[in-house]
Design a protein around this nucleic acid. Structure first.
Lengths: 339, 339
DNA sequence: CTGAAAGCGCTTACAG
DNA sequence: CTGAAAGCGCTTACAG
């Protein structure tokens, strides 16, 4: 790797001039600029972003951090994609870390990112309390929470209306004649799970159905917990006849459980999944889901983050996106029509 | 953020001593070490990795780069997970970039990573020729190619035996009585696609079946191309009655095409997918696939990369992992038994 | 328009 | 065992 001073030597100018020619070309005469550019080309010079970052004040590193709870979950992969597209378009590079739904790993990534002097951080926080993210935000690190909220902290946030998504799904099931409707919660303690549970209960309540605790279970947002909980809930004699699963990966496990129990969808059990996973339309029957705008969630959050980096003092903004119930075949909607 | 010199002041020692106390504690007396540690705690001091990286020679940054062709593809997400687990365990942080199957984006990420002075880079190269990766490797950047090879360059490589995977799948179909077997290739030009095509042809050849060009199509490894190609290939009057799809995301599209055409699996069309996607077992019928050890691919490659970083002069090693044919219901294997 | 100088936050020979 | 000094590769007031 060639260095700035080698370029300077070859071009016959001082290092300062090379630096200027590269980052603020208008401050340099046309002739020297050309000579510098030629030298850069000849030496294949690429400035060290590390050295640059050390010198330049916050807000100019061109790096933003994104801590993803679970890269295996297509929903987060889509969110990351949205974030990355916006960042790239504005000349930013995204440093992605996979926290694996583990608070300790999340914290480690946040520390590394701070220590790498990123300009800002975006994350779906794993849990509201005593997070390293809050501390960094208080110390002036630009931060945006995406998908999940942190309670009690005034920070830029982009979320989906989770209560509404769950409410719509359950109302749909009720409209189809169901009254024994189960709910499988994702990781308890995060805002998405909590709000979906609220939406579920609200829909039941509004239709005069009592929400018995025996119809809900809490998991960990992984496939395996979906399978276990599904077997547990649906293996009971007085099992529900309809089910809302609070998370895309868990839905996969629930489908395995249903197959294992020999139940038919939708005749024996109607299913609505949360998140429109890529495979939802090719299932038999195609899965009815609450679709979340993952890509938009990521892109809007990145816009907010870059905005905050550019103007750290601006007031915080909270964006709420709408989910959409996508009715396919797994609830027997068409079945009901035919009755 | 507190700095090294503030810690030094609080502890009543010189900055050099603080640095030593932190990175080589055995060089410092017990008393001063304790005072430094106390000061670090009080000030919540976190060393700047940026400054450290500038000073320290290559091989000690604690950062490795991973350029992923497509984060939406669960296969690569799994690979990334394997890579990350090994890196974390050894104190390394992985900087992930999403190249989006785009040579230009791949190059941009590679440049950023070099310019961030990462210790090494791991990637499934998007195309063998004139890649920035090769240039960087020649300039001394530790590099390992994973999943895909670069022809003609002597570099550490971890791949799966793609020819074997495709061969086994096609041989399985032939064993079931099929002779008109189609193949949908992923992005042409990358080693995985090429080798799978070779395996497909070899299996046909070994069983005395002529591999007509009208039974193969080339796509771009995306779902949409699977759908388009599937409709095209299976919409013909003399369509194949069995199909190997060269890529997990394309398989999703093919399944949509099959449903759209009103064909039944496996009666009208037997299907084998490449990659054991998470949803394969919950399809109806469950999908027969060639399983690739994605996690192991990533973890082995990371071990190789960290090994090379530690010893840049060692001879290059090539690892080939074995795929595994997972027979489920989409080829009618059980159907055939009953005949 | 250009150069010399100082400095970003660390680490590491070198002396003591 | 500890400190003063130099330096990693840049950027940016400050003079001219």
């Amino acid at each position: 790797m060639s260095r700035l001073h080698e370029v300077a030597k070859l071009a016959g100018v001082s290092p300062s001039t090379v630096s200027r020619a590269l980052s603020r070309p208008e401050m340099v005469s046309e002739g020297t600029r050309a000579r510098v550019e030629e030298a850069v080309r000849r030496l294949k010079y690429r400035p060290s972003r590390v050295a640059r970052r050390l010198r330049v004040e916050r807000g100019l590193s061109g790096l933003v951090g994104l801590v993803i709870p679970d890269l295996q979950n297509p929903f987060f992969a889509e969110l990351a994609r949205g974030a990355e597209d916006v960042a790239q378009a504005r000349g930013y590079t995204v440093l992605i870390g996979n926290a694996d739904e583990d608070l300790e790993k999340e914290t480690r990534y946040l520390e590394v990112m701070r220590s790498e002097s990123v300009d800002g951080i975006m994350l779906p926080p794993s849990s509201g309390v005593n997070s390293a993210a809050i501390e960094m935000w208080r110390e002036g690190m630009p931060l945006v929470c995406v998908d999940r909220r942190i309670a009690g902290v005034d920070v830029d946030t982009v979320v989906v209306d989770n209560a509404r998504g769950a409410y719509d799904a359950v109302a749909h099931l009720i409209g189809l004649g169901h009254r024994r409707i189960g709910f499988l919660e994702g990781i308890p303690g995060i805002s998405t799970s909590r709000e979906r549970l609220q939406g579920y209960r609200a829909a039941l309540g509004d239709h005069g159905i009592e929400a018995g605790r025996e119809l809900t279970r809490s998991g960990d947002s992984r496939r395996e917990s979906g399978r276990r909980l599904g077997e547990d809930l649906l293996g009971q004699p007085d099992r529900p006849h309809a089910l809302l699963v609070g998370n895309g990966m868990m839905t996969l496990g629930v489908l395995e459980a249903i197959r294992g129990l020999g139940l038919r969808i939708p005749e024996d059990i109607a299913v609505v999944g949360y998140d429109d996973m890529p495979w939802a339309p090719v299932l038999t029957p195609p899965l009815t889901v609450v679709r979340q705008p993952g890509y938009e969630l990521g892109s809007r959050a990145m816009e907010l983050l870059l905005g905050r980096i550019a103007d750290p003092g601006r007031s915080t903004t909270a964006i709420s996106l709408q989910p959409e119930l996508v009715v396919r075949g797994s609830c027997g909607a068409s079945l009901a029509d035919r009755r």
